[in-house]
Structure formats: C-alpha cells, structure tokens
Amino acid sequence: MTDYAQHYEKLYTIRSFETLLLDEFASGIFPGTTHTSLGQEANAVGVLAQAREQDVVVSNHRCHAHFLAYGGDPTALYAELMGKPGGVCGGVGGSQHLQWRNFYSNGIQGGTLAMAAGMAFAEKKASRDAIVFDFMGDGTLGEGIVYECLNLISLWSLPILIVLENNHIAQTTPADQAVAGSMTARFEAFGIPATHLDTCDVVEVQEAAGDLTRKVRRESRPQALVIETARLGTHSKGDDPRDPRDVELLWDLRDPVERIGRLLQDRERVLIQRKVDERIRAAFETALAMEGQPT
C-alpha cells in the first residue's frame, strides 16, 4: 500500500464513521447529540501520526476524529455514543467525554487546555519523555482560561503541541464575529512559537506536525500549530446558518478525504472505501447488538 493509500484509509475511516453516525441518528439509537469531525479529518490523522505510545492526547467536544486517529476502536465509540456498558466510558461519557489509554476529551471549552498543560507538567516532572497534543478550536479562543494557560505553559516550559483547528465557525458564529486580531499572534504574545498552515492536505499537516513535534521533544517547550480548516458538517446535527452554497464550495475546495483520494487510482480508492465501509458498518452492528444498560 502506498503512503497515500494508507492516509486515505485513515481519513476515510473517520469519514465513514461520521457519515454512518449521522445517517443513523434519525433512528433514535443515539441519545443526546453529537458533533462530527467532517472536514477536519486531516488534522487529526496528520498530527496524531506523530504521536508515540507514551504521548498524551487531549481533545474537545469535536473529538471523534482525534479518538479514531489515535487508534480508538470504532465499535467502542459507537457503543459509547449509544450509551452502552461496552462503550469507551461505559456509556457515561458519550460523544464528548472519552478516555482511553492516554486519550482524554471534555465538552467544556477552554478547560481542556489547562488539563493538557497539567499533564505536560506531570510528564516532564516524571521524565517519561512524553509530550502532550492538545486540540482546540477557534471558538475556544473566547475563553479566558486559555490565556492563563498559555502564560503558564510558556512560563513553565511545558512540552505540548497546541493544535488550533480554525474551522472559522463556532457553532453558528463566524470567527470574524468572535476573534479579533491574529490567532498566531495570541500564542506568540506568550512566547509560544506559532506555525500557520492553510491546507486540507494530510501530508502537509503531517510534515508540519512532525517538525513541531520534534522541536517540542527536543527542547521540551511548547509549540502551536494553527490550521485553517473547514467544518463540512453542521455544529451538531442541524444547526448551521451558513449559506448551503458556501458549504458546498467548501466541500469542493477543502475536503481532505477527496483531496488525497484524487491521488489514488479509482479502483484502489473504491476498494478502500468498500473495505472501510464494511468495517464501520460491522462496528456499528456489533455495538448495536451489545447489551444495553442493566435496568
């Protein structure tokens, strides 16, 4: 398998998972709501290709891509979303609150950066040679604790790669109505070098993340990576005030799955799609067949 094919399979796994999730949501199998990672798959796959076994990953409310790219089991994630005992967190956490191995997510904005910073402190203190990957979005920049943490992360030289996925929209509010000034400058103001990337190409993300990860490991200091990305889905399930034509344009221009898929032969691409779709369907069916909560 070529590198492209491997990348494609990883991206398409997330895409297939999220698509099936949205398709099945109407059936009422899933309680509550969910935030999908449609359009942001390359960030998760590209960045977490750099994670080593001992590293820690902290994610947010939009965490499915991060969890799956980290190596999380689609069956366990479906079961979690269904609220079953066999889920990632026994059906307690649900879509936003996942914990498996060194992966943690929380649905509260801003506080996850504090959590990630504390973890980076602990890893450094214990000399475990681990770094922390923290994923946040442009909307999170509105939270005050972010700046307390950027200050502490820089002050205490914590080994953390902060990945800011700027999808240009926070729920329904465009970033230009919520974020003043420059996003990279916010990190730089605290002495945290920030790299800006405007791409949906997983290879570019992986290479940039590779450079930064090496620096974080070598210098035991923080780095930030701001990725211009696109939310191709709604915020959760039906809340998207954007003009559908604009979203369609984003699908044409900024779909990371399509982008890498174009580099494959049609036959190879279709084979991967079929294989992954089957695997994801099987994961869904397995989760569906699992015992529910004891009553």
């Binding site: 504090a114 910073a117 504390g118 973890m119 402190f121 602990a122 214990a126 943490c149 502490l152």
Partner: peptide
Amino acid sequence: LTTPISEAGITGLAGGMALRGL
C-alpha cells in the same frame, strides 16, 4: 510553585497533573 494570579489556570493544571500521577 508560586504562580501568576490565575486561579482557574492553576486549578485546571492541577487536574491534569493528578490525572497523570501527581
């Protein structure tokens, strides 16, 4: 560790520290 005037930040960090063994 003496800290900046960042009660939320240091408490949040403490949570992460505790999850990773401190």
